[in-house]
Nucleic acid binder design. Sequence first.
RNA 1: GAGGUCUUCCAAGUAAUCGCUUGAUUUUUCAAGAGGAAAGUCCGAGCUCCAUAGGAACAUGACGCCGGGUAACACCCGGGAGCCGCAAGGCUAUAGAGAGUGCAACAGAAAGCAGACCGCCUCCGAAAGGAGGCAAGGGUGAAAGGGUGGGGCAAGAGCCCACCGCGGCCGCUGGCAACAGCGCCGGCUAGGUAAACCUCGUCAGGAGCAAGAUCAAGAAGCGCUGGGUUGUUCCGCCCUAUAGCGCAGGUGGAUCGCUUGAACCAUCUGGCAACAGAUGGUCUAGAUAGAUGAUUACAUAAACAGAACUCGGCUUAUGGAAGGCCUCCUUU
RNA 2: GGGCGGUUAACUCAGCGGGAGAGUGCAACGUUGACAUCGUUGAAGUCGGCAGUUCAAUCCUGCCAUCGCCCA
Length: 115
Amino acid sequence: MRKSLSKDRIVRSKGEIQAIFQNGKVYSVPDVRLRIKCNGLEYSRIIVIPVKHFGNSVQRNLVRRQFKEIFRLEQERIETGFDLALVLYKGRTLSYDQKKEAFTSLIEKAGLLRK
RNA sequence: GAGGUCUUCCAAGUAAUCGCUUGAUUUUUCAAGAGGAAAGUCCGAGCUCCAUAGGAACAUGACGCCGGGUAACACCCGGGAGCCGCAAGGCUAUAGAGAGUGCAACAGAAAGCAGACCGCCUCCGAAAGGAGGCAAGGGUGAAAGGGUGGGGCAAGAGCCCACCGCGGCCGCUGGCAACAGCGCCGGCUAGGUAAACCUCGUCAGGAGCAAGAUCAAGAAGCGCUGGGUUGUUCCGCCCUAUAGCGCAGGUGGAUCGCUUGAACCAUCUGGCAACAGAUGGUCUAGAUAGAUGAUUACAUAAACAGAACUCGGCUUAUGGAAGGCCUCCUUU
RNA sequence: GGGCGGUUAACUCAGCGGGAGAGUGCAACGUUGACAUCGUUGAAGUCGGCAGUUCAAUCCUGCCAUCGCCCA
């Protein structure tokens, strides 16, 4: 499988985001919270949402890009057919490796790791 | 060497692997891809819509030395004046207080066509004190209606004189001008505040790309009224019942606007400069939950910080480098 | 992205060029056997911050910070 992440792999419309937040299951580690919901498609999608006062726009864009990169590299190990919403809270500053660790443990908790 | 001050420049690059957006080409590649502030939204414009920004009066707001630059500006350049600084240099919402209204708490005798507490002097009186003259000295205050020196006087005072300061719809000279210099006149009369009202001059219609246009989908109508620019009034002209306003309901998708522009680079010419002109060259982000990331190497990438219609400025945040100038110290 | 408004005592607000205030709350005292109510007294403030105008700024002007509202 090609490790791409094009625009249709990102949750885009406002209604779908609302649906994840109303009906999704919640898993969390410090400073990061994951909500998942079945989407009925052949692939999984993601959206990264920093909370309102998460630093300035440079910091918000940086963490969003880094989590998208982690999802892109790990997506072949993840079950298909789910929408993932990552909500980021402002705590300590995580390095790239720490973010990757947090993401992997969240996927394990949610039982989405492909065997 | 230390401190200060002004100006300019840079804001990472290259290679590899995996990826993102746009455009070409076509099925595989190629090219391009955040800032000096992209920020704050404080000014000025372009652009779009509001049926007519057509006129007049009164409001309202902004600006305010002079000359120039600019599409325009509250910006920039040059000059004048005042203030600050030992200096380099910096700051100034820098017209009018000789049109009017107002304000100046407290203190002080007196605060605006000024006034007399202490005091000084003269006269009356035995004394206490009284009548008058004065504004130099003390004291109050942010501010007490020219300053210094001399003459003069009972004591004093622009009362008189010299110099300095101040004023004049004064003259001459220099300057496009602001203004400066000199002369003459005035014996001082004319204090502060206009980021208080105001006067004078200049400018300004309003809203903003969530403007606005088209397509698709969806929905449920009801009530009121003539309405239409949005400071007020008047005049003129015109549009529209497929109208306007209010409440309720629905959608919240796609395309255009959307990037070639008062653009950038180089050279020459004019100008003290801001800037303008000519010639040649270049095409340089266009996303829509929002594209620039991750890892490795090059000794090492660290500050503030991320385009959302586009320009010209201002302001604020911030790392580093270079140069000019000034002051002080040390050495030769 | 664009357009507006606010910030004064612990809380809610008034004031708008010369004295920083009101109500609630807080503290002390009185009243009561005790409490509530009531009465008296008191404390509490860089008027969001930094500059400028003025003799003098919560007030006028500029910049910054922060909070909130509106639009399709």
